[in-house]
Amino acid sequence: MNDFSVEAKGLTKYFGDFKAVDDVSLTVPTGSIYGVLGPNGAGKTTSLRMTLGIIDPDEGTSRVFGERPQAVRHRIGYLPEERGLYPGMKAREAIAFMGALRGLDWSEGRRRAATFMTELGLERVIDEKIRKMSKGMAQMIQLIGSIVHAPDLIVLDEPFSGLDPVNQERLEMLVRRERDRGATILFSTHVMAHAERLCDRLAIIARSQRRFEGTVDDARSLLPMQVRYTPRADADAAAIAALLPAGAEPRGDSWFFPIEDADVEPLLARITGSGLGVAGLSITRPALHDAFVHIVRQVDASFDADASTDAVEEALA
Score class of each variant (00 low, 15 high):
residue 1 M to V: 15
residue 1 M to S: 12
residue 2 N to E: 13
residue 7 E to M: 08
residue 7 E to P: 01
residue 9 K to L: 03
residue 15 F to N: 07
residue 17 D to F: 03
residue 17 D to W: 04
residue 24 V to K: 07
residue 27 T to K: 03
residue 30 T to A: 07
residue 32 S to T: 13
residue 32 S to L: 05
residue 33 I to D: 00
residue 36 V to G: 05
residue 38 G to Y: 10
residue 39 P to E: 10
residue 40 N to S: 12
residue 40 N to E: 11
residue 41 G to C: 05
residue 41 G to H: 04
residue 42 A to E: 01
residue 42 A to S: 07
residue 43 G to E: 05
residue 46 T to V: 10
residue 46 T to G: 00
residue 47 S to P: 01
residue 47 S to C: 05
residue 50 M to G: 08
residue 53 G to R: 06
residue 55 I to H: 11
residue 59 E to A: 11
residue 62 S to F: 01
residue 68 R to V: 15
residue 71 A to F: 14
residue 74 H to C: 08
residue 80 P to A: 13
residue 81 E to N: 06
residue 84 G to Q: 04
residue 86 Y to N: 09
residue 90 K to H: 03
residue 101 L to R: 10
residue 102 R to G: 01
residue 103 G to E: 11
residue 103 G to Y: 11
residue 104 L to E: 09
residue 106 W to G: 10
residue 110 R to Y: 13
residue 112 R to A: 09
residue 118 T to N: 14
residue 120 L to E: 12
residue 122 L to S: 00
residue 124 R to N: 10
residue 128 E to R: 13
residue 128 E to F: 05
residue 132 K to W: 09
residue 138 A to D: 02
residue 140 M to G: 01
residue 143 L to D: 02
residue 144 I to H: 00
residue 146 S to Y: 04
residue 150 A to Y: 14
residue 151 P to Q: 06
residue 153 L to Q: 11
residue 154 I to V: 15
residue 155 V to S: 07
residue 156 L to W: 09
residue 158 E to I: 12
residue 165 P to G: 13
residue 168 Q to N: 15
residue 170 R to V: 12
residue 177 R to T: 09
residue 178 E to T: 06
residue 179 R to A: 00
residue 189 T to H: 04
residue 190 H to N: 15
residue 190 H to G: 15
residue 192 M to Y: 07
residue 193 A to R: 13
residue 193 A to K: 11
residue 193 A to N: 08
residue 194 H to N: 04
residue 196 E to V: 07
residue 197 R to L: 10
residue 198 L to S: 05
residue 208 S to C: 08
residue 208 S to Q: 09
residue 216 V to H: 01
residue 218 D to E: 13
residue 221 S to K: 05
residue 223 L to Q: 06
residue 224 P to I: 12
residue 225 M to D: 14
residue 229 Y to V: 14
residue 231 P to W: 08
residue 239 A to R: 15
residue 243 L to I: 11
residue 244 L to G: 02
residue 246 A to T: 11
residue 250 P to C: 01
residue 253 D to F: 02
residue 254 S to N: 03
residue 258 P to G: 06
residue 262 A to Q: 03
residue 264 V to D: 00
residue 266 P to D: 05
residue 268 L to M: 08
residue 268 L to S: 01
residue 277 G to Q: 07
residue 280 G to A: 08
residue 287 A to Q: 05
residue 291 A to G: 01
residue 292 F to V: 04
residue 293 V to R: 00
residue 294 H to P: 00
residue 297 R to S: 10
residue 299 V to Q: 02
residue 299 V to M: 02
residue 301 A to C: 03
residue 301 A to G: 06
residue 301 A to P: 01
residue 301 A to R: 11
residue 303 F to S: 10
residue 311 A to Q: 12
residue 312 V to F: 13
